[in-house]
Amino acid sequence: MTASLETLPGIVRPPSWRIELPAKTLLVNANDNLHFRRKAERVKVIRNAAWSVARHMKIPALERAHVFFVIHPDTKGRRRDPGNWAPSAKAAVDGLVDAGVLPDDNHTRLLGPDPRIGTPVPGAQLVLVITDLDAMDPAHITLLNPTGDPT
């Protein structure tokens, strides 16, 4: 028999939110060779979409958070490297900052964004999972402040 984290004594699951950008949003891949204006247009759309979804979901202001992103690639059968979509995740995190979810996306406020690969969907989709680090046991978040200095 296995136990989930919720059933172990003393373990409290911190609050988290799942932001799904609209499917078929044109994402930015590190391997793309886009003209800078086309790339800027895509970054703006991703940033605004993340801002809009975060505001609609009424995600509260967080001091520190862990973010990982799940890329659901297009249905074309190829091998995928989820880290190649980091520029899209960066734009989405900037949208979270614009929405007031995070005060900044520097190393003292943000752990991640960490890439994951999801199941393929037509047109591709980016999903962010945001976890409130301040609601976690401080012993589990030393990676954010490895020196132990107060932030």
Rank of each mutant, 00 (worst) to 15 (best):
L27A: 03
L27E: 00
V28M: 01
N29F: 08
A30G: 15
N31S: 14
N33K: 14
H35C: 09
F36L: 12
F36T: 12
R38N: 07
K39L: 11
K39D: 01
A40G: 04
A40F: 00
V43Q: 13
V45R: 11
I46P: 01
N48L: 12
W51T: 12
S52W: 06
R55F: 01
M57I: 08
A61L: 04
A61T: 10
L62C: 10
E63Y: 07
E63G: 12
A65C: 06
V67L: 07
V67G: 02
F68L: 14
F68I: 04
V70N: 09
I71Y: 02
I71F: 04
H72E: 13
G77T: 11
R78M: 13
R78D: 13
R78W: 13
R79C: 07
R79Y: 11
R80E: 15
D81Y: 11
P82T: 01
P82C: 05
G83F: 05
N84Y: 08
N84D: 15
W85M: 09
P87N: 07
S88H: 08
K90V: 10
A91K: 01
A91P: 00
A92Y: 02
V93L: 03
V93W: 04
D94F: 08
D94H: 10
D94G: 09
G95L: 03
G95H: 05
G95V: 00
